[in-house]
Design a protein around this nucleic acid. Structure first.
Lengths: 192, 192
DNA sequence: CGCGACATACCAACCGGACGGTAACTGTCA
DNA sequence: TGACAGTTACCGTCCGGTTGGTATGTCGCG
């Protein structure tokens, strides 16, 4: 009947764990990202964390899936407000990566994810799976495969650059990148 | 007379440690990259490793510097054989990243470096320092800053993609990327 | 009851690095 | 040139803190 006395729904706990795990990643970075730290921040115990995510990698998978879903939403939203069909999908990918405010928290989380993928191959494969899925969202996109790939590589490169502070990229330069792909003006030679 | 009993030159030991450390990184990956594993592969002991590199991060710095030097050489060689001055520098950067054979060992080492930079901020800063240095190698390069930046971001994105197996990039596509920057045909809008 | 959602207590192994000691090399000064 | 002092290169061992994971108990709900 009523859910007042009932114990909390497990899904809520699971969601809270992921949420708090992202907080820990944002604040403590990869070296501070431990099961104990995550559990300490949740309302539940470490045992509960291990109950929902039997291993640390499983927790990271949950986090990556969550982040992937968020980013997918951002990309779809970006594509939805783009009237120009040519290259819409790839452009949305780039736009969602470039435009979204990159807070220090995002950077820290990104680093943790990056480290995790670099250490654990299964997580890297999960990343790839996400990319594959987001790539086929709009097969009717008329843009050439080479140009679309180029935009995605560019977006990833910019993301990595932001993560590690490699290049100073001004807002104007980001804007210039956004206007790269226009109909009738393919970038790579293969896309005639 | 003979050098059998003589102690080896310390620089040789240091070089050997870095060399074997790269081997360990290539074969065992980030999770297997421990001081013990490195020491076990060298002819010297763990104590000697710590003597030359007082901390694990210091060893990684040495490895990154070494790799950076190698890559710098590759870039300079690529630029030297390029008759076209326009965008030569940025193109060489891209070319050295794309063209150089990416062996599984390279991928494994790259992952270790990536993880290290993601975990330890000082290593990421070292990466940035290297990029800054390699960027000013040829200030007379007439290519626009935006286009040069774009090529570098593209190269980094491709490198990351190769590291994690994110995109399948055919040799033809890599070739298409190489011919991106040509005189009289700027890519970004800002470089008129 | 029984099953899933937790809590508590605990463990064992890994790993970075500290440390005391030794042997080899280098400079110095008589 | 040779003895002595100081320094550098290196060895082998040990420690202890951290951390991922387990084992077992408990409680509520259906």
């Amino acid at each position: 009947m009523d859910t007042i006395t009932r114990r909390r729904a497990p899904d809520d706990t699971r969601a809270e764990i992921i949420d708090k795990a992202l907080e820990v990643a944002a604040e403590l970075g990869a070296s501070g990202f431990t099961l104990d730290a995550v559990a300490a921040r949740t309302t539940v115990s470490k045992g509960a964390v291990l109950h929902h995510f039997p291993t640390k990698v499983a927790l990271l998978e949950g986090m990556i899936d969550h982040l992937g879903q968020m980013h997918t939403d951002g990309i779809l939203a970006e594509a939805a407000r783009d009237p120009e069909p040519y290259g819409r999908n790839a452009r949305a990918y780039l736009r969602a990566t470039v435009t979204e405010p990159v807070t220090p928290q995002d950077v820290s989380i990104g680093r943790v994810v990056m480290a995790a993928c670099a250490i654990e191959p299964s997580l890297a494969r999960r990343w790839r799976t996400w990319v594959d899925r987001v790539k086929v969202d709009d097969p009717s996109d008329p843009v050439g495969a080479d140009d679309a790939l180029m935009l995605r590589l560019l977006a990833d490169g910019l993301w990595v650059s932001d993560l590690f502070g490699i290049h100073e990229v001004s807002p104007e330069q980001r804007q210039a990148l956004l206007s790269l792909l226009t109909p009738g003006h393919p970038i790579t030679a293969n896309d005639a």
